[in-house]
Computed example of a mutant assay.
Amino acid sequence: MPSAPPSLRTIPITLTINGRRHDLDVAPWTSLLDLLREDLKLCGTKKGCDHGQCGACTVLVDGVRINSCLSLAVMRDGAEITTIEGLGTPERLHPMQRAFMEHDALQCGYCTPGQICSAVGLVSEGHAHSRAEIRELMSGNLCRCGAYTNIADAVEDILEQQQKAAAE
Rank of each mutant, 00 (worst) to 15 (best):
R92L: 10
M101I: 15
F100N: 02
S118V: 01
E91G: 15
E102A: 14
P90C: 09
A105E: 04
G114L: 11
D104M: 09
L87W: 05
L106W: 10
L93V: 03
G109P: 04
Q115R: 04
Y110K: 09
F100R: 00
L87F: 08
C117Y: 05
H94L: 04
R92I: 03
G114D: 10
Q115F: 15
S118Y: 02
D104F: 15
G109V: 13
T112I: 10
Q115W: 09
F100C: 04
Y110S: 13
L87H: 04
P95S: 02
M101V: 15
F100A: 04
G109W: 12
I84F: 11
E91M: 10
I116M: 06
S118K: 09
C111T: 08
Q107I: 05
P90W: 10
G114R: 04
A105D: 06
L106R: 00
G86P: 00
I116K: 02
A119G: 09
E102R: 14
L87N: 02
P113L: 13
T83F: 09
C108F: 12
P113H: 10
P90L: 13
G109A: 12
Q115H: 15
I84N: 00
T83I: 05
A99Y: 07
G114K: 02
C108D: 08
L93E: 03
Q107T: 04
E102I: 00
Q97P: 04
D104E: 15
A99T: 00
I84T: 03
C108L: 12
H103P: 02
Y110P: 06
E85H: 09
R98K: 15
G109E: 10
L93D: 00
S118P: 08
I84E: 01
M96R: 01
Q115T: 05
I116Q: 01
T89K: 00
C108G: 11
A99L: 04
Q115E: 14
G86S: 01
P95Q: 01
R98S: 15
L93T: 00
R92A: 14
F100V: 06
E102S: 12
D104Y: 14
L106E: 00
D104T: 01
M96C: 07
G88Y: 07
C117H: 02
R98G: 08
E91S: 15
Y110N: 05
G88D: 00
Y110R: 12
P90G: 12
P90S: 11
M101C: 13
S118R: 13
P113M: 14
G114I: 06
T112V: 08
P90Y: 08
D104V: 05
H103D: 03
Q107D: 07
T112P: 13
T89I: 02
F100M: 12
I116G: 09
M96A: 03
L93R: 15
G86K: 00
I116W: 04
P95W: 00
C117D: 04
E102P: 07
C117A: 09
Q115I: 12
I84W: 03
F100W: 14
H94S: 07
C108M: 10
D104H: 15
C117W: 01
